[in-house]
Amino acid sequence: MQNGKTVVIGVIGADCHAVGNKIIEHALKEEGFNVVNIGVLSPQEDFINAAIETNADAILVSSLYGHGEIDCRGFREKCNEAGLKDIILYVGGNLVVGKQDWKEVEKRFLDMGFNRAYPPGTDIKLSIKDLKKDLGLEE
């Protein structure tokens, strides 16, 4: 059953880790989302352009190779610039290099304008629950 919401997903920057991306696509589809997967090696502009054309409700950004912070900088501002004012932005994967305090890392991504950020090893099912809540599909 389709739930009527469209989500853009992809792996940002020069990052070619493809496995998690496919798993996320599958999990979202199972929950009834219309998934627009732009795949690996995707610059910010590709996420934004895809969201505009498909009238997406949310963008889920993956970053696995440790350069997430650099790659994600300015993402929210670009969304605003492109007219995607209230679009929901999540980010997850292995966002930074090494063992850093997650609270610190999370704060940095929230300050960048992401609605939610997820630490390594997060079960994607939990994130999808959050997403449904944020989109008003579930309590």
Partner: peptide, 9 residues
Amino acid sequence: AGGTDGGNK
């Protein structure tokens, strides 16, 4: 043109 099917209209 403009929008994917089901996308921006």
